[in-house]
Nucleic acid binder design. Structure first.
Length: 800
RNA sequence: GCAGGUGUGGCGAAAUUGGUAAACGCAUCAGACUCAAAAUCUGACGGUAGCAAUACUUUACGGGUUCAAGUCCCAUCACCUGCACCA
């Protein structure tokens, strides 16, 4: 019937040659910035899941352009990082080479799908011209005191041979390979993200993210208000500090628990009489993975310290101290006060080890329901009689502060960002270690610090980056004193490059700075940012932190980077399971484009269902959408010479214009496609349609199926190409029918429908309804109790 | 355990936000065209009863509010996602 390949290639070429989708940095038009997460150019190519989100935002970009916006819709490649490196190692090729090959494949796939990306702004994060600025920004963190090197127990993946951030090792499993992570003490570069905890929380209010994304970030940051309390160590002039959200329960403390890693265990090893037992327990705790340690069903374990006691500051009572792995080293102070009467975990521990339990909130016994709720304070001296939590807490905090034994404190789950990776394929961290001067930054004018070419880039067994073996690169002079020094050999995580790429798109070729202030001011915040839910507490949090830092340095004009964040659902295999090679249910977009065309694939993926929900692939569904496009093509034979809307189609066309516009802007693509199907069905029923009828349906379909629609528009000389045309206007006056259907019901049950003139008055409607045979049947010889008449909608007669 | 979400035909889903449930598409069945196939077109398609008009019934489950509930409220169940011994 028609050769979709020829048509698609033709228009893709025209769009590129005419630079139709290149955004201007100096435009009178209002800007609109649409962004989809740039992909890792892995060896497996584009996924049908990419097609879903790219098409969705592409349709939005095309509509926005038609509505007169200067649209920035860029694309690039997140090319540093583990996936590219692993692929390179496996296939014994140089990472840079393989990355370039993969980028070519990805780009050609995207071009074949007709996405209206602005390719003039393309870059990859592994380009030295790009990572020069990633390194430069790292140095700004360093100068501001927010990058520091610390000996830290990190998550270590024994398979990938690298350290991982907390975010990459969630649940004690390596994000990349699924191997159980181990703890390893290493000296690491850290970014002080914890300093931005409150900003990251407050900043959410300036964004329009989906609630579930906000919730995920709020939980991850994990702000909790409480108090820090100092318990004096018996016989020492020293204190054990704890954090608690319930200082009002201080009188209920019957024991303390320190984490097995607590530094006092070493400091007071001579004081602790059963230190051997302690060491044994520490050994035991270390052997547990995070998963095993945090298994809630596991019985509590622990060791009571012999000879080490603390004094409860509110009543001067001597309190026993335990160590147990249910207390985490890296949260709070690594030690807690235990109130077994009102905390489930403390209760479990106390009952197992026969530790006394003192109730301090009346009716708040752990064995009764709602023990955490408010209650009357008892056994609590100064707090006795207070019956609300808030008052009790604030009174206790005042007391602690007056006595100098504690203070109000806010704690966060959010930790600093471990920024070192012991890998080759990443941005070198531009720092030099000098025996005399310590850590010295590489001078900014020497950036980029280029990744050297090395014969072997595979990770080393020693836990050092492969760069450590490149001695002539490692050895250098101290920029400060000129003495022999050594370069840092760790590289940055691949989250680094993606933390600011959206800024570079605003001014991608600038070699004076990462982006000019003019460009940054013009483009402002990303208006619409689409990406996966899996990035809610990773990329999306890192990028916000990075941006907020740049804002504080006066380097960007907005506090937050992204206005609106949306997420697409996954495309599952035909069997309803996640697509994977091992399950054999992977659908290759190239095959679909070859068999049905890019337009059909795009239309299908928009029609597949609710954009934010997962959807199973169905090739039959795709065929159905191809049939729809074929029907659109066939309609060309019905077009007559008339240049106005057909009278009997006018209302539906106007309604459809409105619906498609609204639906695409609210991401209800499935109903937009369905509205166009309905319209095409109406066209199909007619002998003839007008040129304007036809051009309008093509125009409305163009954002979703851009190739075929441009072709038909040109073939019939219906008007300017759509990429140069404004979106059709609808006439609000023509949207309403002059006839409406009224539902007539008796006792809420539909008995008849009548067609009447629009705005027929209530009395008339009621009269007409009662005349209906099928209505009469149900109201005859019945007592009418109530009559409800809603104009243009419904009549309901209630009878008894 | 906490937080968020979802539940509608054989399937993917709609439903003007409280007003005719199942639009649109897929699959299936029957028919037309054809030597035949494909494509296309016509019709049927939640369930039960009926030749039919039609009636009853139906939005996970049970209550409630209302003239009217898929939609609002309460309780229950199932599933999904995130966080989780966070003091």
């Amino acid at each position: 019937m028609y050769d979709f390949k020829e048509i698609e290639e033709k228009w893709q070429k025209i769009w590129l040659e005419k630079k139709c989708f290149e955004a201007k940095n100096n435009s009178e038009k209002e800007k609109y910035y649409l962004l989809v997460e740039f992909p890792y150019p892995s060896g497996s190519g584009l996924h049908v899941g990419h097609v879903r989100s790219y098409t969705a935002l592409d349709a939005m970009a095309r509509i926005k352009r038609m509505k007169g916006y200067n649209v920035l819709f860029p694309m690039g490649f997140d090319a540093f990082g583990a996936p590219a490196e692993q692929y390179a190692i496996k296939n014994h090729v140089y990472p840079a080479d393989i990355v370039n090959d993969c980028i070519k494949v990805f780009k050609s796939q995207m071009l074949k799908l007709g996405f209206s990306f602005d390719w003039s702004r393309e870059f990859a994060t592994c380009d030295p011209k790009y990572y020069k600025w990633t390194q430069w920004q790292f140095l700004q963190f360093y100068k501001a005191g927010l990058a520091y090197k610390a000996e830290k127990e990190i998550n270590w993946c024994p398979k990938c041979l690298t350290g991982l951030s907390n975010e990459d090792a969630e649940g004690g499993v390596c994000e990349r390979c699924g191997t159980k992570t181990e703890k390893k003490l290493k000296s690491q570069w850290m970014l002080k993200m914890s300093a931005y905890a409150d900003k990251l929380l407050d900043g959410l209010e300036k964004t329009d993210f989906m609630d579930k994304i906000k919730t995920a970030q709020i939980n991850w940051i994990g702000r909790s208000e409480g108090a820090s309390v100092n318990f004096k160590i018996e016989g020492e002039d020293d204190y054990l500090e704890v954090f608690t959200t319930r200082p009002d329960t201080l009188y209920g403390v019957t024991f303390m628990v320190m984490s097995p890693e607590h530094k006092y265990l070493e400091k007071y090893q001579n004081k602790i009489k059963n230190i051997d037992e302690v060491h044994k327990y520490q050994e035991y705790a270390r052997s547990k993975t995070d998963i095993e340690r945090t298994d809630l069903t596991r019985e509590k374990t622990g060791v009571k310290l012999d000879g080490f006691y603390v004094i409860n500051p509110v009543n001067n009572e001597k309190v026993q101290v335990w160590i147990s792995d249910y207390v985490l080293a890296n949260y709070g102070t690594g030690a807690i006060m235990a109130v077994p009467a009102h905390d489930q975990r403390d209760y479990d521990f106390a009952t197992k080890f026969n530790i006394p339990i003192i109730e301090v909130i009346e009716g708040g016994d752990i064995n009764k329901e709602a023990y955490t709720g408010d209650g009357k304070m008892i056994n609590s001296d100064i707090l006795n009689g207070i019956d609300n939590k808030k008052e009790a807490i604030s009174k206790m905090i005042n007391f602690l502060e007056e006595k100098g034994i504690g203070s109000k404190k806010v704690n966060y789950k959010l930790q600093d960002w471990i920024f070192s990776r012991q890998r080759f394929w990443g941005e070198p961290i531009p720092m030099i270690y000098c025996e005399d001067c310590g850590w010295v930054p590489v001078p900014e004018e020497e950036l980029p610090l280029v990744l050297p070419e090395v014969p072997s880039y595979e990770p080393t067994e020693t836990g050092e980056s492969p760069l450590a073996n490149v001695t002539d690169w490692v050895n250098c002079k101290c920029p400060k004193c000129g003495k022999d020094a050594k370069r840092e050999t760790d590289t940055m995580p691949n989250w680094a490059g993606s933390s600011w790429y959206y800024l570079r798109f605003m001014d991608p070729h600038n070699d004076k700075c990462f982006a000019s202030m003019d460009a940054l001011k013009y483009w402002g915040m990303v208006d619409y940012y689409n990406g996966g839910m899996e990035h809610a507490t990773r990329h999306l949090l890192y990028a916000r932190f990075w941006h907020e830092f740049l804002y504080d340095q006066g380097l960007v004009p907005t506090e937050e980077p992204f206005k609106k964040r949306v997420s697409h659902g996954m495309i599952l295999g035909e069997n309803g399971e996640k697509m994977s090679k091992s399950k054999g249910n992977v659908v290759n977009p190239d095959d679909m484009v070859n068999s049905y065309g890019a337009d059909a694939l795009r239309t299908y993926e928009m029609f597949i269902g609710d954009y934010s929900k997962d959807a199973s692939w169905s090739e039959n569904g795709l065929k159905g959408c191809k049939r729809f496009l074929d029907k659109i093509y066939r309609l060309k034979d019905k077009v007559n010479d008339d240049n106005e809307y057909s009278k009997d189609l006018e209302i539906l066309i106007n309604k459809t214009i409105k619906k498609v516009d609204e639906d695409i802007n609210s991401m209800n693509y499935n109903t937009a496609v369905s509205a166009l199907m309905i319209l095409s069905n109406e066209y199909d029923k007619k002998e003839n349609i007008t040129r304007k009828d036809y051009r309008t349906i093509l125009h409305l379909l163009n954002p979703i199926a851009p190739h075929l629609t441009e072709e038909l528009n040109e073939m019939l000389s219906l008007g300017k190409p759509f990429y140069e045309s404004s979106f059709p206007e609808y006439d609000e006056n023509k949207i309403t029918f002059d006839k409406v259907n009224i539902a007539c019901s008796v006792n809420g049950k539909l008995r008849a429908t009548i067609e009447v003139d629009k705005d027929t008055n209530e009395n008339e409607l009621l009269k007409l309804a009662k005349e209906q045979e099928n209505v009469k049947k149900y109201i005859e010889e019945k007592e009418i109790i109530k009559e409800i008449v809603i104009k243009n909608k419904i009549v309901n007669i209630v009878v008894k």
